[in-house]
Design a protein around this nucleic acid. Structure first.
Length: 748
DNA sequence: AATATTCCCGTTTTT
DNA sequence: CGGGAATATT
């Protein structure tokens, strides 16, 4: 998380009322020159977005349109005119985005004191600060996905439901979904209208109870509880709004109901909400993101300024044309007219192969060829829909001798050794955290097994205390049977480790790693694999960095940081190798050369028999992938694909048929006879007749710009008569014609 | 209580 | 096919 400390020297305390906004808008000398510098080199809509100050504004930013630049310059502009830096709150989804934004604002030299944070980090920090008002204990710990599953499993067992019908994964999905909608267990129970939902309501309720007993929150709780608190506590809501009169939310298309509520509540009076995003890049619907939030913005915030950033600075014309044609197939969107001044470039290649191996070989060879020709490996990426597709490419790259990295393979903080240490710290900070306790009680193995743990938990339950309190409190351990002394020894160990609570995060880590026995355990295994110990060292240095950046931070702060950060900052260098990653992971990145593989029906667009696919989201995903490419874009597929050990015949991705002939060059499988938009096998694309009328401006690949002179609606098709600027006049069947609507949307 | 074995199941995953 | 988790050994 890139947050500023809550208070900066020389600035008012966090909760002091800010000076009246108009009063501080008097500019200091030199400010005008700095504003000019901020605006230099911006295009017209970008400038609009940057100089807008009060009231709601929606910045619809196409891919490669310089959004981050606009957002950072806008924040800087606010700080130079109507606001003080510490009155600005910028919220992102990822830590990476937060860091980037903070760095770039810092470089502009006016960001001192600004709060730049992820949604989750902001909520966690605020909830801890106002724990009493939120009905929480200040030392709550944050559950990750694995922990949450374990706890759900306990919940299911506790209410004696068979886990066969209720897998923790299934329950997790439902709980997460409910929380994203801000639906508590009680709410869910109230509206459960069949037996199955009632069963689930019981699980949810039991899970809530367990969380309370363990003094934990899961990721979704951070948002839901925060939204709920802001709703209930008007005084606090108003306090936060006056603390942060200017709020900026990035990637707004990815907000869920809880995040939407938070955004709305934080800006309830002043409406100083700046939302940036792109509905066409909404790819997290399955995680609860509601694309409707951004599409409804103008209704939710009447009088909102709307700025379209449509000029693309990233990709060649061919790439942009292909991507734009694809996304035009969606109906649930805000129409943008993407354009670029960049060169036409090379056509998008569509290559089809016999099988996955051939495909992977060809991709690897092509990558090798590029690198030999002098291209930088770090500017090359291979993208795929599902992780299991990486294997074939990896093997092919190895055969070719090309170095690669997989983005977000095993996340650092998810490694066993890291979670082990964190579990120790969690128990020290929050003894009620039973998930962490049961993890460390036999890590390293100390002769305490499942049955002993069972008895321990039962005995603690009888006494009405937590298991950790029982162990720490030197209670009578005889009811635990044979392993009683082992438990007593473990209690002594915990008391020794508790010294870590008075140390700085890195020192606490060192203390725990050494005295818990983890050091010895991993050293013994070190003959085979010394990675764990190296990772622990890295963990310590990450904690040191954290401590240096925030000298006043406590162990609780660092644990929170660790829970909300998925990866330590790797040295991002230009000299890195070829990158392999999922389409989702590629969002926000760009590469000179991009290969998107496995464009096959069922894989991209992804679908499963039992679940209905969201083809529009899949199309957005493909759009996101294509628009990562700056110079070269290659789309590949295979006639036969081995998946989960079985080889199957594939069907060409319907998305390929939606790309305009003019922008692609194909090789491989025979093309389908008709590849026109209107007859794409998805059936998703009968042109929206309502969007066409006499006078509509159109573009044709060979004829150029034109205007609809008349329309005739026949039985099955609609004929349009178009007069072209070049002088010609032609009649087309709208369903089959390669006509594109040209729009001139109002800007700002 | 710790280790070997089978068996089961399978998207994407910012936090 | 391959990883994780429930189950069978020692």
């Amino acid at each position: 998380m890139q947050e500023s400390p809550p208070r900066q020297r020389g600035t008012p305390r966090a909760m002091d009322a800010p000076p009246p906004l108009r009063y501080i808008s008097y500019m200091q000398s030199g400010t005008e020159a700095r504003i000019d510098a901020l605006l230099a080199g911006l295009n017209e809509p970008q400038r609009c977005a940057v100089t807008h100050t009060d009231g709601p504004i929606l910045i619809l930013a196409g891919p490669g349109s310089g959004k981050t630049r606009v957002v950072t310059h806008r924040a800087a502009h606010l700080a130079l005119t109507v606001a003080r830096p510490w009155q600005i709150l910028a919220i992102t989804f990822t830590n990476k985005a937060a860091r980037e934004m903070r760095d770039r604002i810092d470089n502009l030299g006016v960001g001192e004191g600004m709060t730049v944070s992820t949604f989750h980090a902001f909520c966690a920090r605020t909830l801890r600060m106002y724990a009493d008002r939120a009905g929480l204990q200040r030392n709550f710990t944050i559950l990750d996905r694995d922990d949450r599953r374990k706890m759900l499993k306990q919940a299911i067992e506790r209410i004696d439901l068979s886990t066969a019908n209720w897998t923790p994964a299934r329950a997790e999905h439902l709980v997460s979904h409910a929380k994203n909608e801000m639906c508590s267990a009680a709410d869910f129970e109230a509206r459960a209208d069949d037996w199955r939902q009632q069963q689930f309501a019981k699980i949810y309720r039991a899970y809530e109870a367990l969380q309370r007993e363990n003094n934990t929150l899961d990721f979704d709780d951070l948002l839901m509880v925060m939204a709920d608190l802001l709703r209930r506590d008007e005084e606090l809501r108003a306090e936060l709004e006056s603390r942060y009169p200017y709020v900026l939310i990035d990637e707004y298309q990815d907000t869920n109901a809880a995040q939407y509520a938070i955004a709305e509540l934080l800006t309830h009076e002043r409406k100083n909400l700046c939302a940036t995003g792109d509905p066409d890049q909404s790819i997290y619907g399955w995680r609860g993101a509601d694309i409707g939030n951004i599409l409804r913005f103008e209704e939710d915030f009447p009088d909102a300024a709307v700025v379209f950033l449509e000029q693309n600075y990233r990709s060649t014309r061919y790439i942009l044309e292909a991507a734009d044609a694809l996304i035009a197939g969606n109906t649930n969107r805000k129409h943008k007219t993407l354009w670029t001044d960049n060169d036409q470039g090379r056509k998008v290649r569509v290559l089809e192969f016999e099988d996955g191996r051939e495909e992977a070989d060809a991709v690897a060879k092509d990558i090798n060829r590029r690198i030999r020709a002098g291209d930088s490996p770090s500017e090359i990426a291979v993208l795929y829909r599902i992780n299991s597709l990486s294997r074939g490419v990896e093997e092919a790259l190895i055969r070719e001798g090309v170095a690669y990295q997989i983005a977000r393979g095993v996340e650092f903080y998810n490694r066993k050794e890291v979670k082990d240490v964190l579990a120790y710290l969690r128990v020290l900070v929050n003894p009620a955290d039973e998930i962490a306790l049961t993890r460390i009680i036999s890590t390293p193995p100390r002769g305490i097994g499942a049955t002993t743990v069972e008895r321990l938990l039962q005995r603690a339950g009888e006494l009405g205390i937590t298991a950790a309190d029982f162990i720490l409190g030197e209670h009578d351990v005889t009811p635990l049977g044979r392993s009683a002394t082992k438990v007593r020894d473990f209690g002594a160990l915990l008391r020794n480790l508790a010294k870590a609570l008075d140390l700085t995060p890195p020192e606490a880590l060192k203390h725990v790693i050494l005295h818990s026995g983890l050091q010895a355990m991993y050293a013994a295994a070190g003959e085979m694999d010394n990675q764990p110990l190296a990772n622990l060292d890295e963990l310590i240095s990450a904690a040191s960095t954290f401590s240096q950046e925030r000298p006043e931070s406590t162990l609780v702060d660092w644990l929170e940081h660790a829970a909300l950060v998925s990866d330590v900052d790797s040295v991002a260098g230009g000299g890195g190798p070829v990158t392999l990653m999922t389409l989702h992971a590629a969002k926000g990145l760009e590469f000179e050369s991009v290969y998107v593989i496995a464009l096959e029906h069922g894989l991209l667009p992804f679908s499963r028999e039992d679940e209905e696919a969201d083809d529009e989201e899949e199309r957005r995903l493909c759009f996101v992938a294509m628009t990562r490419a700056k110079e070269h874009l290659t789309l590949t597929g295979a006639r036969y694909r081995m998946l989960r050990g079985a080889t199957r015949r594939t069907t060409r991705s319907p998305f390929l048929d939606e790309l305009p002939d003019s922008a692609i060059e194909s090789a491989g499988r025979e093309r389908k006879r008709s590849r026109r938009v209107g007859t794409a096998p998805t059936g998703a694309l009968p042109p929206d007749i309502a969007e066409w009328s006499i006078g509509t401006l159109v573009e044709h690949p060979t004829e150029g710009l034109g205007q609809v002179m008349s329309m005739t609606r026949g039985g099955k098709r609609t004929l349009v008569d178009v007069a072209f600027k070049a002088g010609s006049r032609k009649t087309f069947a709208l369903e089959f014609a390669d006509l594109r609507r040209v729009d001139f949307d109002d800007v700002g």
